[in-house]
Structure formats: C-alpha cells, structure tokens
Design a binder for these strands. Structure first.
Lengths: 163, 163
DNA sequence: ACCGTTGAGGAACGATCGTTCTTGACTGAT
DNA sequence: ATCAGTCAAGAACGATCGTTCCTCAACGGT
C-alpha cells in the first residue's frame, strides 16, 4: 500500500554522514540535507523524526561501517607510524568522529555513546599493533592538526560560511 | 571627548574567550555575548566590528596569554606523562584551541593562523621535555577524549542547546 | 553654558533556522 | 473503479540569527 519511496534510506544516511563529517552540526542546514541527499523534506522528518535523528542515524552508520573498516586497516599496520599513515590516507575516515567528539558529544549523551564505541574500537585495533600508550589520542590529534592546518597552497574557492 | 566606556575591553575579550571555549562558534549567539559580557550590543559592534571580530580578538588573547602560560607549565614537567597530567589540570586550557582547530580553522584562514601559533608554542614547550614524537597531537587527543567522554556521573543540569 | 562626540538602551531589520501544514500524485488491495 | 494509505512538492510557520538604526544620556573642549 501507499506510494513507493523515491529514495534509498541507506544511501541517504551515508550521504548525510559525508555532509556531517565535513561541517559542524549547526553548519549543515536542513535545506542542505534536502538538496544534497535526494530526499524530500517531508520524508526526512517522516523517516528520521528530526535533524538530530538523521544525524544520529548517520553517526551510527559511520561508527558501524567506516570506523570498523578503519580499525581493520589499522590492525594490519606494523607499528604506530604506519597506522598513523594509514589513518591519514583514509581521508575523511576520522573527520566525522572528530567533529562528533568535540562539538556534539559534550551536549548529547547519545552522541557521546557512539563516540565511545568508536574510540574503543580504535583502541582495540591499535592495541594489537603498538605498545604506545594513548595511541588513539595521538591519532586523533594528528588528524585534527591536519584538518586545521592543511598545506595551504590553494585558497579553497567554494563553500563559504553561511553567515 | 564623549561619554566614557562602561566596560573594560580586556575583560570583555577574556570573558568572550571563556564562552567560545565552552561552545561552538554558532552555539554562542550575540545575545549570549551581550548578556554575559556586560557590554552593549552597539558597543560590541563599534569595538570589534562583528561577532567574528570579537571571536578573533578572544582567540588572539587566548593564544597569547593562556597558551603561553600553559606552555610554561608544560616546560616545567619532567616527562610526557606529567605534561599530560598538567594539561588536564589546567582545565579549559586547551578547550578553546580544540574548538578553534576543529571547527573554525578549516574555514577561516585567520583562525588557522592563530591555531598554528598556538600549536607551535606547545610543540616547542614539549620539545624541551619529551622525545616522544607527536607529543602535541597526543595531548590534544587526550583532552578531546576527556571532553567528549567525561565521567558521566552527573547529567549536566543546565546550558541545554538552543534548538 | 553650549556643542560635538561617544556610549547606552532597545526596538527593528531581513535572512535563515528547524519544523509543520496543505495539496495532489501515485500505489496495492478490495 | 474505488478507497485507504504513503510519499512528493513546496508554501508557510514562529523563533532566532547577526546586524543596523534611532534616540537619549553623559562627557570634554571651547
């Protein structure tokens, strides 16, 4: 019964994760989501309840899939150096986690729980590889630094802030 | 000439740094600033030009003062362990830097420049203390983790998000 | 004593936010 | 063929955003 959906829910969640990995929660508007995700405003609220609901769904998908893949990759590294290199090469592999940890986890317990899961997964993966204590922290710090201060040869032509 | 100011500019900048260290840039409204800083809306725009102007002033004050103090503290530590402990004890000592690096530096070159200054200062301070490579990254990662996942015995009664 | 200048006070602006409502198109089952 | 139920399309809502404007009070210089 009813009209069939014109969008793939899993694909919407995945695309949302990409958006939320690139900008702060408040920096991604519902208009942005509607435009880039190929899902209608109404369907978004029907399916996920709210912007936060979609954010949580995206975060959970990310922790379950992307972080799992990253952890497997790290496990295959020989030492911390190589693990760090692999983590950098994974591109946006840690970005969603970074943003969620810094800006949402402190004010949203459910986000904090997902962040906890992700960090534990990385801890466990790195534990099999290196004896360096706080290896996960170092990995996060490295990615943070790379994001904040990329080699600024270009001037990032697009995607200016909204206000 | 003219009516004398009813606020202390340095004090306003310092208080703004505290606010911006606690919440995301978009999470601190101009209303919040006006209410908590004891400066009038008009004076804020007259003195700092914009919300971003005040943010930059606060960040510069923070990098120059708080980070400098933190660096001196770190230099007095015996090894990385102790440096990490001192950094944690410094409370909000790294929080503003964390937020600025993750959420503003990627989209604001002037913020990125200040973040660079701060990171270099910490690098230099830690270099005199430990041979651990990426010590600064590890320090940031540790603080990030502590912020995201504090020992959640209490439920943080106040300061809920605005929307 | 007056005037030029500056800050305080607070209303008001247009834009954008997240969310909801209204309308109509499409579907499977009766 | 009809009807209940779901989704698409997009206008519209009140709230809040950063910023500006207008008016008056408080000062220094003449």
């Amino acid at each position: 019964m009813g009209r069939p959906r014109g969008f793939d829910e899993a694909e919407v969640v995945r695309a949302a994760a990409v958006l939320f990995a690139g900008r702060v929660y408040d920096g991604v508007s519902v208009d942005d989501l509607v435009t880039h995700l190929g899902v209608h405003r109404n369907s978004l609220y029907k399916t996920f309840g709210s912007k936060r609901g979609l954010y949580l769904a995206a975060l959970r998908w990310y922790v379950e899939h992307e972080v799992g893949v990253l952890a497997a990759t790290l496990r295959r590294a020989g030492d911390f150096e190589e693990a760090a290199r692999r983590a950098s090469d994974s591109g946006t592999g840690l970005d969603f986690l970074l943003l969620a940890a810094v800006e949402r986890a402190p004010v949203d317990d459910e986000v904090a729980a997902e962040v906890d899961r992700a960090l534990n997964a990385i801890d466990e993966a790195l534990g099999t590889v290196t004896a360096v204590p706080q290896a996960t922290a170092a990995l996060l710090g490295l990615r943070l630094r790379a994001k904040a201060l990329p080699d600024r040869e270009d001037v990032t032509p697009d995607s200016s802030p909204r206000r």
